[in-house]
Design a protein around this nucleic acid. Structure first.
Lengths: 346, 346
DNA sequence: GTTAGCAGACAAAGGGTTAGAGTGCTAACA
DNA sequence: TGTTAGCACTCTAACCCTTTGTCTGCTAAC
């Protein structure tokens, strides 16, 4: 919408307007701006500037004789400026890092804790999406016989143990013994990446003489595929009920809570940034989801250049962006600290 | 509050009043009752009866010139009568039973499904608490060696497999071999009830010569104790957001959702019936929890005389009790069908 | 380009009236 | 003694009207 750079005064007026609106939730008048932020010019001048800003699509007024309210475009500009001029207190940072370092081990716990910290600090609902590393490697496969020809399948991976699936054993394997079968399975699967299972190559490895194992292989491949599917993304939401602090409309609350309860939509929402910058801001709803009258601020987290996840805040359009930006930035720094700390320990 | 039996007419008037209020949500006047339910007497007569009912604590009026609204006592009486006169359609019952029988195996899934059915049928939030059987029996214990002297502990019980705990192996067991250790463990634990682990007796069984196993025994007993602890109760909630269909106050919604998100309070709420009857009704909040302006209807489910759980509905005070009672009753019958079916199969 | 001044628009709040729905009371009646 | 009709009284909700204050846009002057 905005075609060219705004004049310095327009920008100043716009920032003042957004600041004031975030604080007061009331349409901001030219007089307000003049008295609080720009006493050196008259309100009439500010009025004409506001007129221009309205024509540019930054602001709007609810009715003829009301003050102005910011539109999405205004919030975006406001955020960009706030992000550039962001400040961060060292003490906040060290407190965050402290909360993290207690549980450095587990990436799931780490993101749950990140979500808690974000919500505690901002008082908005937070969302943390983690891309779990896709190169899970199979370290060992074991079949453990239970009664009735059922065997528990144990798969030890670089990311943990899969131990909740069992299969029925075909006669052929029952006779040959589970030890043998386990060894054979290990021969095929050991060292493989879960994300790159080459079924055909496996079948070739089994060879003609072991066709009876086909069924077991298929079942194990199924287990692995499901595992990599469900492990790929995890979504943590914290403070969903914060919506009740700022929204009065039951239907809005319902929409919000439904969205926030649906990991899939959330993940889509958070991991499709509208820009390739460090920080993404989405206001209102569009084709990728979103929700009316709400804004979503998302930051992307990388370790060694690899994107490991996104963390974001979902709150009212008129949210305390400065706070939110500073917290998300702090989380980013903390995570880097934690992981650097981790590295040096090894 | 009510000291003696109500006259037949009073009871009829009270029932009419509750019926009407549930439908309309508007205070009910003497004229309404006369025209819709009791045309054979005048409104003045009804007025004097209402006066009496008010004195007895069954009803109240919001202000001098308003109709009457039911109080908790009125709802209770209404429910008792509705429960005695309940009807249930065979087709509904067979539909419910149908939904259950697909997943008869797992009690967890069963209660999750029960919660879904209740919410689907009533449009209120449902809560299902399951007392898992306490006499879980150990069928087999296996140690499966992983790398680094770690072993996965597999415990096959009558209720499923515990397979998510691992322990560090002491040298003694490493040398003796896992087969031997597993056999020994089975000798001690096989057939034992998880709820009645007699630690001393086990230690005696191990005997002096196997003192090195002590550590492993302790760890396994820990695992079993935790298991029986976390398995004892499970709480399923479905349709929490239904509260938004009938409540407009953000703070009420918040309280409701917070309660409903807290399994422990819920479980307490649902499993402390105020009466020893089949059905319990709790209106408003009291020392056992509860929530203002809400009612909780709970039914207790037994199999072979043993209480296996409670299912309930939590909704607005003026909820469709007839529907709710019939659904809870239907669930009870369905569960009996399912379990009887299960029995005859064995 | 900026400003002061002014007319016009509008929302929000307050007051007063009216209409309607209820009740309680009383007196008459069976 | 229980029931009923009639009536006075109460209270809410809706409506209209006015007032107040806040903003804007426009215009003319600087």
């Amino acid at each position: 919408m905005p075609k060219k750079e705004l004049s310095e005064r327009k920008e100043k007026i716009l920032t003042a307007l957004v600041d004031d609106y975030i604080k007061s939730a009331v349409p901001v008048s030219s007089g307000d701006i003049q008295s609080k932020y720009l006493p050196e010019v008259s309100s009439a001048t500010i009025r004409s500037e506001l007129n221009a800003l309205e024509a540019l699509g930054y602001i709007d007024k609810p009715h003829t004789s009301a003050g102005r309210v910011p539109l999405a475009e205004a919030y975006k500009l406001y955020c960009e400026k706030a992000f550039i001029n962001r400040e961060f207190s060292e003490s906040d940072l060290s407190e965050m890092t402290g909360r993290f370092s207690k549980q450095v081990s587990d990436i799931e716990k780490l993101s749950a804790e990140a979500a808690k910290i974000i919500t505690d600090s901002t008082n908005y609902t937070s969302i943390v999406v983690t891309n779990n590393f896709e190169d899970v490697e199979i370290e060992e496969i074991k079949l453990v016989g239970l009664n009735n020809g059922i065997a528990l399948v144990l798969i030890v991976t670089s990311c943990g143990i899969i131990s909740d699936k069992s299969i029925e054993l075909p006669d052929e394997i029952m006779h040959a013994g589970l030890e043998t079968a386990s060894e054979l399975l290990n021969g095929v699967f050991k060292g493989q990446k879960v994300s790159k299972l080459d079924t055909d190559a496996f079948l070739a490895k089994i060879g003609e003489n072991l066709k009876g194992y086909r069924q077991v292989f298929d079942e194990i491949i199924d287990i692995l595929k499901n595992y990599s599917l469900e492990k790929r993304k995890s979504v943590h939401v914290e403070g969903a009920l914060r919506v009740l602090d700022y929204s009065d409309s039951p239907s809005d609350v319902k929409n919000f809570l439904q969205l926030v309860g649906d990991s899939e939509s959330l993940e889509k929402l958070v991991s499709t940034p509208d820009d390739n910058i460090e920080l993404s801001l989405k206001i209102g709803s569009d084709e990728n989801g979103g929700i009316d009258k709400c804004a979503i601020v998302t930051a992307e987290y990388k370790i060694n250049g690899q994107v490991i996840g996104q963390a974001g805040v979902i709150g009212p359009e008129r949210m305390d962006y400065k706070k939110v930006l500073s917290v998300l930035d702090g989380i980013k720094k903390s995570l880097e600290n934690v992981f650097d700390g981790d590295k040096t320990e090894e």
